[in-house]
Each structure stands twice: as structure tokens, then as C-alpha cells.
Nucleic acid binder design. Sequence first.
DNA 1: TGTGTAATAT
DNA 2: CATATTACAC
Length: 343
Amino acid sequence: MIKKIRNMDYNQEECGQYIEALEEERRKILVFQRELPLCLDLVTQAIERCKKEITETATDNVYGQSECSEQTTGQCTPVLEQFLTIKDSSPFNEEEVEEEFEDEQGNHDPENDSEDKNMKSDWLKSVQLWNQPDPLLPKESQQMMETVVKRDESMREDAMANSGERRRRETERKQRRCWSSQLHRRFLNALQHLGGPHVATPKQIRELMKVDGLTNDEVKSHLQKYRLHTRRPSQTVPNNGNSQKQHFVVVGGLWVPQSDYSTGKTTGRATTSGTTTTTTTTTTTGIYGAMAAPPPPQWPSHFNFTPSIIVEEGSGSHSDEVVVRCSSPAMSSSTRNYYVTKN
DNA sequence: TGTGTAATAT
DNA sequence: CATATTACAC
């Protein structure tokens, strides 16, 4: 894609220009939202970050840079870099880039965060993708879930007392598959390659995703949900409370808040100031869509581009194995405790 | 056989 | 209530 602008010094002015350029870029991409939702988002986020940085530096920020502080490797690469480096994956490319960064923003002060609701932080950090007693489970991931399922198919042919009903044989309900952010990401990726949720068909998606244990039905189901959520939010905004005129536009099935994030606001502003007026982005809907601005209020924030440490050690190799069964009911509510992938 | 959608389970 | 699985109709 176009987006060659890449190396540039991090000066304010340049940054300013850069932002402009980015914004223009964004406008262009906007047209192709459907095909390049990811791209759009990346640019958008880049803009945001950039602005933030400017403001911060300008104001001589008080708190050491809050969120962009790289806990990662220590080198503070300008956020921009991160976005820019991502190569856009063109439709059919054997190897995709994915696996980029998962979030895992370790810890930040418990309270305080206030309502920056964007907080891309919490959520369950990445999470293992799929548990299942597989040997392939990398070291981490055990810990709390030893209780896991074990009974799985252990029983089966043995007559075992049988007798009784208990498990409806064959028809046992499958274990729920958890769509981890990575999985979802692949899903979206495939989706966009195929041209949107409404044209993509489960099978194609599944094939494109190339995820090992994924079945058609699962994809189908996920697709269904996705489509559901991407429909028009609802006219009668039951919402209320604050009538915010936030329009969401559905473009090609991926929707995006129309208001741009680019204008004023510069995010930041941590000065307490309670006023919850802020955004709120009408929870309800949003989430699914393209990873537009606000981090999903309720979904496992996929698309959180946070610096983060990549937990994946190996670099590619047999990348995927993105699948993981989620057996433990645990996860869902465990927003607070993340599994530490590696400590 | 694969897809879309509703019903149902968790 | 949201998400995932199963059932059912094309």
C-alpha cells in the first residue's frame, strides 16, 4: 500500500506535517474502508498517537509519558514507527504478518486511569488461545488451569457403566470455542480479504484463516454474530442519558464512528476532572467492527495496538495454533487477573 | 454440500 | 445479556 512515509525524525513540526499527511491519507483510505479497515484504523491510531505525543511534549508533560512508555524493550520507539512498520497485508499472501503484537500491557495503576475509556488496557490480556490438553501448549498457560478438563474424551468406548444417560453420547455439546483476539483478528483479516462480512462465506473464511482446528460451523457462527453486530446500531437509541450525536456509519459492513478522532481533543487530559460526559461511545454496538477507535467496551479488545511485549518467543515458526479450547469458565470474568504469560 | 438464520445452551 | 453450538430450511 501506500504508506511509505516511514522514516522521519520525530520533530514536532515534522510531526505536525506528518499528521496532516496522515490525515489526508486517512481520508483516502476512508473510501476503501471496506477493503482496508485495518489500514484505516492503523492510520487513525497513528494520528492519534502522534497528536498525543505532540501535546505531551509540548506541555512538558508531567507524568512521564504514560501510555506510550515502552515497557517493552526499553527503547522508546515512537509509536508511529510501530504503526508504520506494519506492513499491510495484501490480499493473498502466503504468510501474513499477523502475530504482530498482542496486548499485554502489564500493569498500570489500579485506579487513576479514570475514564479514558479508551483504555485499551484491561481486557483479558491476550489469553491463551486455546487450551486443550495438548502437548503443544507452550510452557506458560498452565498455572491456574490445571483443573482443566481432563475428562474430555477420556471416556468413550469403555462401556463404563454407561447406564445412564448422563452424557448424551455423540451429541455431546462441543466445548465452546473462544475466539481469542488473535483468532478474531485472523477472522477479520480473512473477512476483509474476502470483501466484507456479507460476501465472505464461512468456508472461505475458514480457509483463509488457516487455523488448525477451526470448523466451518464455528466460523459460521462467529460470522453470524459479527454480522449481527455490524448492522445498524439501532435507531431508537434507547440510550439516552446523554444524547450524544455519535453517528455510526456502516460502510461495507464494518462500521465506524463517524466523528473523527482526529480533531481536537488530543486525548490526554488526565486532569482528573471527573465529568463523565465523555464519550462513552455508546457501548452497545461497537465492538465488532473494524477496529475503529474506541476499544470495545465489551469485547475482548481485539485490536489493541499496544506496544506490548510479544510473548511469542519463537518468531513465526509454526505460528498458529491459535486455537485453544476454552474450557474453563474462568476467563470471561477474569478481567482483572490476566494470565501472565511469562513472568 | 454449504450457507443463512433461528433456537437453544452456557 | 452475550457468545457459542445445534437445528433446520434452502
